[in-house]
């Protein structure tokens, strides 16, 4: 069976997870499983229970993946530390809290599996965007949805409509670059 993520390597790990009450199965190679946050290594230092005991007081949680796996990886003795607030990854795990908005970037890929577990496998925000500072992002999302539409129009050979939409996209992109320079929050 091939890995359902990269479709290249052989799938050696199989995971069950429950999203919104529905059970889904996924088979992955070890590399993709790690990348996608389905497995964590002991030297990254936390068990699910340890982590959650710090994060939650409630019971009956619906946690994403039920599979964990061990692997032989070299140990990383260096401690990752957020340069903005000084919090180490170990401190973060223990308290279950970040110390500043930069922690998220400082701890990088180590945070991803945590978010995945806490949010039923989700990793991307799809909700509200700040009204004032988020204009750039809002426009960007509008542009990308227009681009999807453009693709469809071309497939359907609606070239006249496609040309109109293409010009509109160009205009929006130009205007939005101003937004970005004007200090939009990216």
């Amino acid at each position: 069976m091939e890995c359902q993520e990269c479709h290249k390597r052989k799938a050696t790990l199989h995971f069950k997870h429950i999203i919104n009450g529905q059970e889904a199965k996924i088979s992955l190679c070890e590399m993709c499983a790690k990348k996608k946050g389905y497995i964590t290594y002991p030297e990254e230092g936390f068990s699910l229970n340890d982590l959650l005991s710090g994060l939650f007081q409630t019971e009956g949680l619906n946690l994403g993946s039920t599979g964990t796996a061990k692997a032989n990886q070299p140990k990383h003795p260096q401690e990752v530390r957020c340069s903005s607030c000084g919090r180490t990854f170990t401190e973060f795990k223990k308290a279950g809290k970040f110390g500043c908005a930069d922690c998220y970037a400082s701890f990088g890929s180590k945070v991803e599996p945590i978010l995945r577990r806490v949010h039923a496998g989700n990793t991307k925000h799809t909700g509200k965007i700040p009204k004032r500072a988020g204009k750039y992002i809002q426009q960007k999302q509008l542009i990308s949805s227009h681009k999807e539409k453009l693709k469809k129009l071309i497939e359907e050979e609606e070239f006249e409509k496609a040309a109109v939409l293409r010009d509109k996209i160009r205009e929006l992109e130009k205007a939005n670059n101003h937004n970005k320079e004007a200090g939009g929050n990216t």
């Binding site: 994060l55 939650f56 279950g96 809290k97 970040f98 110390g99 908005a101 998220y104 945070v111 945590i114 978010l115 806490v118 990793t123 991307k124 925000h125 909700g127 509200k128 965007i129 700040p130 500072a133 988020g134 992002i137 929050n185 990216t186």
Partner: peptide
């Protein structure tokens, strides 16, 4: 605020 992660909060939850 982060485009992919949304509103950044002190707790990952």
């Amino acid at each position: 605020f982060n485009e992919t992660k949304g509103y950044l909060t002190s707790c990952p939850t």
